[in-house]
């Protein structure tokens, strides 16, 4: 039997985890969610799941590899002293189970044996296509003896197009050269109704806030078009933009590794190319 933890039952990551769970055991699948009337509690939610695991003895416990999915399953693993494999893209049946999991934000894969029963696994985002049929989710109450619970939620202060949801993202890297250099990046993003992004080198230099950073430790984006200007394409950065449908890379270095992942390439200095693109857009719009 597979126990599937539904941190949320209405989102894309849950439907992907559901498809993944059906592939593991399509016949005996129990999806459970936690009644969150008292607010989120990582250890409390995990205690509730651990109790279910003791009662129902599943062979595997799955969850979406969301922040909270990973957090709750890690708490379950610590409470039951079991191994836990985070962000798996596939599992092969057997004793022990063999999993393939994501490292370096997806730049590397690890094959590992998971010695423990039940197997605790979270499903890496976009490892499989989402299930479209749905499943009934049983709601259980959180354990009353929770040690840690959120006390309040501060709502987001919205400012323009959000990076995570933007349909077009124009990013600048070290090649932009300065904070002021981003004026031409902002101009192109504005013309395309998109958001401005940047690489980690840029936030480390203090040219842009961390909220603009695309990457493994920044924001993961999935726009229709990603325009990467003066970005070499380190694994740290590519982990954040591999969800982009199309990638246009502008870089003076013919050997830049970002070109291996690009759909379109312009070889040249972004300080010349980017303003020329903005001017051309204005010209075609007759302005």
């Amino acid at each position: 039997m597979v126990l599937l933890f539904a941190e949320r039952s209405d989102d894309e990551l849950f439907r992907q985890a559901l498809a993944f769970a059906r592939g593991l055991d399509g016949d005996q699948l129990h999806a459970v969610g936690i009644d969150d009337a008292d607010g989120y509690s990582p250890d409390g939610w995990a205690s509730a799941l651990a109790q279910l695991i003791r009662e129902r003895a599943p062979g595997a416990v799955l969850s979406p590899g969301s922040e909270r999915g990973n957090e709750v399953l890690a708490h379950v693993a610590a409470q039951l002293d079991l191994p836990f494999a985070a962000n798996c893209v596939s599992v092969a049946p057997g004793d022990p189970l063999t999993v393939t999991r994501v490292r370096w934000g997806g730049s590397l894969l690890e094959e590992a044996r998971l010695h423990g029963s039940p197997a605790l696994v979270t499903v890496a985002p976009h490892a499989v296509a989402a299930d479209t049929t749905g499943v009934e989710v049983e709601l259980v109450g959180p354990a009353p003896e929770a040690q840690t619970r959120m006390s309040e939620r501060l709502e987001a202060v919205s400012a323009g197009v959000s990076l995570a949801d933007a349909d077009v993202v124009v990013s600048g890297g070290r090649g932009v050269g300065s904070a002021e250099g981003f004026v031409i990046i902002e101009e192109l993003a504005d013309l395309l109704g998109g958001a401005v992004g940047c690489s980690r080198a840029v936030t480390s230099a203090g040219w842009r806030p961390h909220t603009d950073q695309v990457g493994q430790t920044g924001t993961k984006i999935s726009p229709s078009l990603y325009i990467a200007c003066g970005i070499s394409g380190a694994t740290q950065h590519m982990a954040g933009c591999k969800g982009a449908k199309k990638l246009l890379a502008i870089n003076p270095d013919r050997e830049a590794s970002i070109f291996a992942n690009a759909d379109y390439v312009v070889i040249g200095d972004l300080h010349e190319v980017v303003p020329a693109i903005s001017a051309e857009i204005r010209r075609t719009r007759g302005g």
Binding site: P83, L109, R113
Partner: peptide, 9 residues
């Protein structure tokens, strides 16, 4: 969690 090997995607 016993690592067996690494692979490039």
């Amino acid at each position: 969690l016993e690592m067996v090997r690494l692979t490039l995607p």
